[in-house]
Amino acid sequence: MMTNLFSVFDPTSSIMNLSLNWISTFIGILLIPMSFWLLPSGYSLLWNKILYTLHKEFSTLLGPTSHPGSSFIFISLFSLILFNNFLGLFPYIFTSSSHLSFTLALALPLWLSFMLYGWINHTQHMFAHLVPQGTPPVLMPFMVCIETISNVIRPGTLAVRLAANMIAGHLLMTLLGNTGPSLSLTILSFLIIGQIALLVLESAVAIIQSYVFAVLSTLYSSEVN
Score class of each variant (00 low, 15 high):
T60Q: 15
T60R: 15
T60S: 14
T60E: 14
L61D: 06
L61V: 07
L61K: 08
L61W: 03
L61S: 06
L62V: 07
L62M: 10
G63R: 09
G63E: 08
G63Q: 10
G63I: 05
G63W: 06
G63Y: 07
P64M: 13
P64H: 14
P64S: 15
P64Q: 15
T65E: 15
T65F: 14
T65H: 15
T65K: 15
T65L: 15
T65G: 13
S66F: 04
S66D: 11
H67E: 14
H67N: 12
H67L: 14
H67W: 10
H67C: 11
H67Q: 15
G69Q: 10
G69R: 09
G69F: 06
G69S: 12
S70H: 09
S70L: 08
S71M: 08
S71G: 11
F72N: 13
F72K: 13
F72I: 11
F72R: 13
I73L: 15
I73E: 09
I73P: 02
I73G: 10
I73Q: 10
I73A: 14
F74I: 00
I75D: 06
I75K: 04
I75T: 07
I75M: 09
I75R: 02
S76G: 15
S76C: 13
S76K: 10
S76I: 11
S76Q: 11
L77C: 07
F78V: 03
F78E: 05
F78Y: 09
F78G: 04
L80W: 01
L80D: 00
L80M: 10
L80C: 07
L80Y: 01
I81M: 03
I81C: 02
I81A: 00
I81V: 10
I81E: 02
L82H: 05
L82K: 05
L82T: 03
L82V: 04
F83W: 03
F83A: 08
F83Y: 00
F83M: 07
F83R: 06
N84W: 05
N84T: 09
N84I: 01
N84E: 07
N85M: 01
N85S: 12
N85D: 07
N85F: 03
N85R: 02
F86R: 02
F86H: 07
F86E: 01
F86C: 09
L87A: 01
L87M: 08
L87W: 01
L87V: 00
G88C: 05
L89P: 05
L89A: 10
L89R: 09
F90W: 01
F90R: 06
F90H: 06
P91R: 08
P91G: 10
P91S: 09
Y92K: 12
Y92L: 11
Y92T: 11
I93F: 04
I93N: 05
F94L: 04
F94T: 05
F94S: 02
F94G: 03
T95Q: 12
T95V: 11
T95S: 14
T95F: 09
S96K: 02
S96R: 00
S96F: 05
